[in-house]
């Protein structure tokens, strides 16, 4: 069952698809790995404003095509990378149905902000697996900060996140909790992050999970609030949950699909983030 748990945590994606949580409390074993080709999409004509109210906006979409990988350097140290190599953001055109007048939309295709990091197992062969991760976010995407573009594929700031996870497997279940601190630069507000996940592995090829992810800004920003395309903003805040279903086609290959919904949020698109992917394990 441990193998199932390992696959599963690596498939976690936050509501904002530019950020990943890796592996829960379990690092990869030496020479083992997990790799995923994923596609996520957010299509939103609503927006959580700075008070948390949902307001109408011109439809903004964000499509992220990414590669995610974990590889065990040792039994305790795992290398992690999340590479959104093709990110497409669009702004719908607007047509006045009475007059027929059309305001043009916009689109941006670019590389996205990339995360790399390491996870260190703090426990070994204990009932509760505890690990610490250090992940840095490289601002390789197009952003309002660097490129003066409304549509964005990144936030433009170099961030460093420390995350501590604790997980435990049961007979056909597992669960994990994690807390983290995300230090953001360029005057963006730092963040407290938390995650909870519970999964069922009782079926032979099917794995079912429910995840809860949250981000709480510490409100120490010196930079102005930005709107942009509603994902990469300063002082983003949300509490989101969602199911993920994975199916193993072969022993080391499978497909996965997920959807995340925000319960409450500020400064972010108000629409589900849906995803599909193919995964492969070493």
């Amino acid at each position: 069952m441990k193998n199932y748990i390992l696959y599963f945590f690596t498939m976690s994606l936050l509501l904002a698809s530019h950020f990943t949580i890796a592996g829960g409390g379990w690092p990869q074993k030496k020479g083992k790995g997990f790799f995923k080709f994923g596609q996520t999409a957010i299509i939103a004509n609503k927006y959580f404003d700075s008070e948390g109210n949902v307001i109408d906006i011109t439809t903004i979409s964000l499509y992220t095509t990414s590669l995610y990988g974990e590889y065990g350097i040792t039994d305790r140290i795992t290398a992690i990378a999340y590479v959104p190599f093709f990110v497409r953001s669009t702004l719908n055109e607007v047509q006045n149905t009475q007059t027929g007048v059309i305001l043009p939309g916009d689109e941006l295709n670019a590389f996205g902000d990339t995360d790399i990091g390491i996870k260190i197992g703090l426990t070994h062969k204990k009932p509760v697996a505890v690990s610490a991760s250090l992940i840095v976010g490289l601002p390789l995407g197009k952003s309002a900060l660097k490129d003066q573009t409304f549509l964005q594929t990144g936030d433009g700031e170099f961030n460093q996140m420390v995350m501590v996870d604790a997980g435990r497997g049961f007979n056909k279940w597992y669960m994990n909790v994690g807390v983290g601190f995300n230090n953001r630069t360029q005057g963006f507000s730092d963040e407290f992050r938390y995650t909870y996940e519970i999964g069922y592995t009782g079926y032979k090829k099917l794995i079912l999970t429910v995840k809860v992810n949250g981000v709480k800004p510490l409100n120490n920003a010196t930079a102005a609030e930005t709107i942009g395309n509603g994902v990469f903003a300063n002082k983003v805040e949300y509490l989101a949950y969602g199911p993920e279903i994975s199916y193993k086609i072969k022993n080391n290959f499978g497909v996965t699909s997920s959807a995340f919904f925000a319960v409450a949020a500020k400064r972010i698109l108000a629409s589900p983030n849906v995803g599909i992917g193919l995964f492969y394990t070493l």
Binding site: A41, T58, Y63, T65, E93, V94, Q95, N96, T97, Q98
Partner: peptide, 15 residues
């Protein structure tokens, strides 16, 4: 296939 074209929002405005 998974990355859509720019869509259209229709706004019904009585001028």
């Amino acid at each position: 296939a998974l990355s859509s074209c720019v869509g259209t929002d229709f706004v019904d405005i009585n001028s």
